[in-house]
Design a binder for these strands. Structure first.
Length: 673
DNA sequence: GAGCACTGC
């Protein structure tokens, strides 16, 4: 059962409709026939068509679970979605959650031997393949919202294609909201003239479309392009408010900064509204917003008030807000990009794709006919790409490739990807895995190091450091640090935007060696004091829920290590004398970190900036780092990200140059040539 | 001198 209190459950909003009234009900027989007849079925249907909740029930009642098999549904890569959909289906089936209908997400397995319909995240289904490569427990696997093209669902598609060859009786259902259904079908089906398990292309799969319940949306373009989309967006909000009858407004902007600006600007102009007219309530929405503030977006506005929701892309697909009639689309989105030559990640503001623009506009037509105001010209729209590049083409692939290798994929380059990743990304990932010792020069996973690294739900660098921790007598401490690093900066939280106060409080935990040991202090203070004392957390600006999550991660990591035969408890009683133990705990931890993060080394210059080991890139310590103000020589860092033209590193710790050569001689010999 | 789109094991 739940190991922790559920957090971040604020973003749920989809109107409940009686199952018999859903558009999908008319297609029940056709769906069952198609899934019975063909190994692969592609479902095209809008959100709200009922596909996710109804198809598993149809299959369950039609006998697909009669032999004890399970129907798996990876309901979008989101925890909240898996739990809420499972709860609704359990209610419709009339069972207790965890019995016939259950779900499984990280830290929370609410399923049992009786479970026949199981909702889970695609990441977890991937992990299950380590134990059960052919997924034999399942008779049907439904990949929901595959068009979102997340890294894990893309990988899952490739693996399922392989599994289908060995299990002709398995059924794969792929759901997609857009019209790229044919690409999905073509991917699974044999090419013309060939057969898979005796079946030709025509015998292998079908597409079924379910009518969505969309109202028409009137699209408006600008005649002339604008330079300041925030200013124009705010003007549009006010125009709508002054000239259009009822209906809430949803404005898409790329990021938090623009959103805060827009909210302020709208708030300023509200004061000009004539007394007695309808009021306007501007509301921000982005993932980083505390969940209590996110809730306002879903609550009905006060009487005689129109909501103007200013949101990131989170409202495009992840979250559904009812009663939106006017959508304003600035035409931009922030996307992660990864540069394989430097290994630097970047959040770039780029034009949206046509698919994205369509999805945004559609948000206006859920309850009645709506309007969409695009803050760009029709010519600009025509120049947009058709769809957003999938994650697999713009991410660091080292974790993915490690996982694929651990699943026994013999040749990573020739794996049947739904979209091929650029070869530079694959090469960079392989180089990194090789330098960490996870793969051999023949590109085979090493044993035990490579397989163990793949087993841990951590980045390869961090996994390597954690697996080395016992050697340095700091396993206990490294578990704490690893758990906190997975929170990526959410351990501290400012109250009411008071960043100055936050900085001051953080100094209490800060140590001269850098952020990792500082994090260790934070974790130890939390488990000794803060865990029982939420008020203490508040006065120390610690995010209680995030810290609880860190405790869960830490426990899960410890269990993984025990499973790998690395005893966590015995580390405490280890003989702590002589050898490595003549060094201080801090030095042992920092040496241990260096064994994983040597490729993330940099040296401070007199001006306080850092230079990468190859001298090619200038880095800044992120302002949240304890080394932001301090002097240092060589350091290693956890995360590197470009923002506004500057490259920032987060979680930075001092090391010695000698350690780099000692723990990564190959890497640094090559680099120095 | 300054800040993280969105998920997830």
């Amino acid at each position: 059962m739940a190991e922790e209190e559920e957090y971040g459950t604020a973003l749920i909003a989809e109107l409940y409709k009686p199952p018999a009234l859903l558009p999908i009900a008319q297609l029940k027989d056709a769906l069952l026939y198609t899934i019975e007849t063909y190994p692969v079925t592609i479902i095209v249907g809008e959100t709200g068509s009922g596909k996710t909740t109804q198809i598993p029930q149809y299959l369950h009642k039609a006998g697909w679970t009669a032999d004890g098999s399970v129907i798996a549904v990876t309901q979008q890569p989101r925890r909240v979605a898996a739990t809420t959909v499972a709860a609704r289906v359990a209610e419709e089936v009339g069972c207790q959650l965890g019995q016939d209908v259950g779900y499984s997400i990280r830290f929370e397995d609410v399923s049992s031997a009786a479970t026949r319909i199981k909702f889970l995240t695609d990441g977890l289904l991937l992990r299950e393949m380590l134990v059960d490569p052919l997924l034999k427990r399942y008779s049907v696997i439904m990949i929901d919202e595959a068009h979102e093209r997340s890294l894990s669902s893309d990988i899952l598609l490739g693996l399922l294609k392989k599994v289908l060859r060995k299990r002709p009786e398995l059924r794969v259902v792929v759901s997609s909201a857009t019209l790229d259904a044919k690409d999905f079908l073509d991917f699974f089906c044999p090419v013309d003239g060939e057969k898979i398990n005796g079946k030709s292309k025509e015998e292998y799969g079908r597409i079924i479309s379910i009518e969505g319940r969309m109202h028409p949306v009137d699209i408006n373009y600008l005649i002339e392009p604008v330079s300041d989309y925030v200013e124009r967006a705010v003007e549009t909000v006010m125009d709508i408010h002054n000239n259009e009858p009822d209906g809430d407004v949803l404005l898409f902007l790329p990021g938090r900064e623009d959103i805060d600006d827009a909210i302020d600007m709208i708030a300023d102009r509200i004061t000009d509204l004539a007394p007695g007219t309808q009021r306007l309530q501007p509301l921000p929405l982005y993932a980083g917003l505390p969940s209590d503030q996110q809730l306002y977006v879903f609550q009905a506005a006060p009487e005689n008030t129109r909501k103007a929701i200013v949101s990131t892309n989170i409202a495009e697909a992840s979250v559904t807000i009812e009663n939106i009639v006017h959508v304003i689309d600035c035409g931009y989105v922030k996307l992660r990009a990864y540069d394989p030559t430097t290994g630097i990640e970047r959040l770039a503001t780029v034009p949206v794709s046509k698919a994205s623009a369509t999805q945004r506009a559609g948000r206006a037509g859920r309850t009645k006919p709506g309007k969409c105001y695009r803050l760009y010209t029709e010519a600009a729209y025509n120049a947009f790409s058709d769809s957003t590049p999938p994650e697999i083409q713009r991410s660091n692939l080292a974790p993915t490739i490690l996982q694929l290798m651990n699943l026994g994929i013999p040749n990573i380059v020739r794996f049947d990807y739904f979209s091929n990743p650029p070869s530079e990304l694959v090469v960079r990932a392989m180089d990194m895995l090789f330098s960490l010792g996870a793969i051999s020069p023949e590109a085979k996973l090493t044993k035990p190091l490579g397989t163990r690294m793949a087993e841990l739900p951590l980045s390869p660098m961090l996994a390597k450091a954690l697996l080395n921790a016992q050697t340095f007598g700091c396993l206990y401490e490294m578990l704490h640090i690893a758990a906190l690093l997975t929170l990526s900066g959410t351990a501290f939280i400012a109250h009411d935007g008071n960043l100055k106060q936050l900085d001051k409080v953080k100094r209490k935990f800060a140590v001269e060696e850098g952020d990792h040991i500082t994090l260790l202090n934070v974790y130890e203070a939390f488990i000794t004091t803060g865990r029982k004392d939420a008020q203490w957390c508040r006065s120390n600006f610690l995010n209680y829920k995030a810290m609880q999550k860190a405790v869960s991660v830490r426990n899960q990591l410890a269990r993984h290590l025990e499973k790998l035969g690395i005893s966590v408890s015995s580390d405490l009683s280890a003989q702590r004398a002589g050898g490595i133990f003549s060094l201080s705990p801090s030095e042992r931890i920092r040496r241990c970190l260096t064994t994983g993060f040597f490729a993330h080394a940099a040296r401070m210059k007199p001006d306080g900036t850092f230079q990468t080991a190859n001298g090619e890139t200038t880095l800044w310590a992120h302002p949240t780092s304890v080394l932001f103000h301090r002097k240092a020589d060589w350091v290693i860092y956890d995360e590197i990200m470009e923002s506004k033209g500057k490259v920032f590193v987060r979680e930075v710790t001092k090391i010695e140059m000698d350690w780099l050569v000692e723990y990564a001689p190959e890497y640094y010999r090559v680099k120095q040539r």
